[in-house]
Nucleic acid binder design. Structure first.
Length: 515
RNA sequence: GCCGCGUUCGUCUAGCCCGGUCCAGGACAUCAGGUUCUCAUCCUGAAGAUCAGGGGUUCGAAUCCCCUACGCGGUACCA
């Protein structure tokens, strides 16, 4: 194998799909692992499906997840860049451009002419109505829909005549029947098709644009692509592509068809059943590393008994091997993504976490309405120290800890631990208050608070035989501070709130009980 | 319909190429117990797959061969 060159070739129909992300990732890993090049190409040959801004969006998403490419369209100018022909604000770099198919129309035309000249392809003037009728008849006869080669027998004069009149037409590949097409797929092994089942594929559409099949083969050849790593939905088209390579007399690339990403009902992953856009996941506060990590494990595993679940991009690059890619589709299970994301959440530094979480917090009502002191960096970092192990994703930040930003007003019933009456609760809160009040403000840490409360519990709530009912002290205190039945420990909460606010909340609860 | 690909715990998977060490291992999820009250985290444990079904080959099959079923993908002047 000479130079390894792979490519990710999305269509600009909106956003980067998570399935596309995985295809891009595997291509990227393959290239990096083998010291090859990763090329990005935009397949915008379907003008009807083009979405404004989609190219830019695609590049942004790829960049957001740190999959860097060596050649193709880029968002910034950089060295040796040229302006992309059809997309303002997009630049291209690399020796095999343009990397946008809509800018390569003359190239495809040239190669189609070659095929026409060698009679490996022919012009077809059939109307879509006729084709439809033909297919309906074939369906009625329970035959596979196939072009009947009506235009293959057209005479040279007639073709000239109709061309002169400017009649709309397409160019079709003349598929030689009776052949067996075999190839080795890196994921699936030996695969074979009979050429009898392959239709005379349209190569050039009547609007002058190439179809995927033509553009793909021509570009992969011209861009010296060594390995075509793409989704399984392309498997049935591969023999058509091979026929094209043969018609041109070009060397075949090596193919690897990746299994599909699935909905929980095992159909092809679709928008209907949840988010499929990479940008949506990032917007929800999943780390790009976590998304990559998750998606890498869908359909691939390092094997060899490895039980590692968390991989950085660098680690993936080291251990990735296409031969370990699975053959069957994989269900996209959000639960596991949540778990992986939580692992990353645990590892991130408090500084970074604060920086990442702030934009999400600032959008929340309870945060906006909170007093100035509750929005200080110091306060929020304390809050996050407590919150981080409760989070699955960044957008969850603060949700379970709203009481840190708002006032609380717990009822007597809530304050009661195991049937404690108002008097007992009052007593418990007074003990807590007295003990906490003795801790100097600058020593008001979880550890100090904890030590103080433990000692107080032992002194006041021992119930014979050295047993201590800590709940009698901790439960009322915690509820007084949080207003919740489920929350972090009172020690942590008190630390975040600070001495002053902690004592205030205890006092407030006591006053309410008194009334 | 036709063509192709696939099928190991609910989910992601290891093992399969090079049959025995697999009465099938790990992770997520679930459930139970433990840790300074509740929650979360963490730790421990449990449950969970007759390896889609059937037939072969073999002393022996998740692993090799054949058939069937089911699922998915493709069957466009979409990619």
């Amino acid at each position: 194998m000479s130079d390894i060159r792979v490519r990710f070739a999305p269509s600009p129909t909106g956003y980067l799909h998570v399935g596309g992300l995985r295809t891009a990732l595997y291509n990227y890993l393959f290239a990096r692992k083998h010291g090859g090049k990763f090329i990005l190409r935009i397949e915008d040959t379907d003008r009807a499906r083009y979405v404004e801004g989609a190219v830019e969006n695609l590049l942004k998403s790829l960049r957001a997840v740190n999959l860097t490419w060596d050649e193709g369209p880029f968002l910034e100018e950089g060295e040796g860049a040229t302006k992309s022909a059809n997309y303002p604000g997009i630049f291209e770099r690399g020796g095999c451009g343009p990397y946008v198919q809509s800018a390569r129309l003359e190239i495809y035309r040239k190669y189609v002419d070659m095929l026409l000249l060698e009679k490996r392809a022919y012009r077809c003037f059939c109307s879509s109505e006729r084709l439809e009728r033909m297919r309906a008849e074939q369906a009625a006869d329970k035959k596979a829909p196939m072009y009947d080669r009506h235009c293959l027998s057209l005479g040279v004069e007639e073709i000239e005549e109709r061309l002169k009149r400017g009649e709309k037409h397409v160019v079709r590949l003349k598929v030689e029947h009776g052949k067996k097409i075999e190839f080795r797929d890196l994921v699936r092994g030996k695969i074979s098709f009979s050429s009898d089942t392959i239709d005379d594929q349209v190569l050039l559409k009547s609007d002058g644009f190439p179809t995927y099949h033509l553009a793909n083969v021509v570009d992969d050849h011209l861009m010296n692509i060594s390995h075509v790593i793409r989704g399984e939905e392309w498997l049935p088209s591969t023999p058509k592509h091979i026929l094209l390579y043969e018609a041109f007399g070009w060397q075949l690339p090596i193919f690897a068809h990746l299994p599909l990403l699935l909905n929980p009902d095992r159909t092809k992953l679709s928008k209907r059943q949840g988010d499929v856009a990479v940008e949506d996941y990032l917007a929800k506060g999943y780390f790009e590393e976590a998304l990559i990590n998750f998606v890498a494990l869908l359909g691939w595993n390092p094997g060899q008994g490895s039980t590692q679940e968390i991989f950085s991009l660098e680690e993936l690059t080291k251990v990735f091997d296409v031969s370990h890619v699975h053959k069957a589709g994989a269900v996209f299970d959000l639960k596991k993504l949540d778990w992986i994301n939580a692992q990353y959440l645990k590892k991130i530094s408090p500084e970074d976490l604060y920086g990442k979480v702030l934009p999400y917090l600032e959008k929340k009502d309870f945060f906006q309405a909170a007093p100035e002191t509750c929005r200080s960096e110091e306060y929020l970092k304390k809050m996050l120290a407590v919150d981080r192990e409760r989070l699955n994703k960044l957008s969850d930040a603060g949700e379970a800890l709203r009481f840190l930003f708002t006032q609380v007003d717990p009822s007597e019933e809530m304050l009661s631990w195991k049937g404690m009456g108002a008097k007992e609760i009052m007593f418990s809160l007074r003990i807590a208050e007295e003990n906490l009040a003795q801790i100097p403000e600058e020593e008001f840490t979880s550890e100090k608070i904890s030590a103080s409360l433990m000692a107080a519990a032992e002194k006041n709530f021992s119930s014979g035989e050295g047993k201590v009912d800590r709940g009698k002290l901790l439960w009322p205190l915690r509820v007084a501070l949080t207003g919740l039945e489920k929350s972090p420990s009172p020690m942590e909460v008190a630390w975040v709130l600070g001495k002053e606010e902690t004592l205030r909340r205890i006092d407030q609860a006591r006053q309410k009980l008194q009334a």
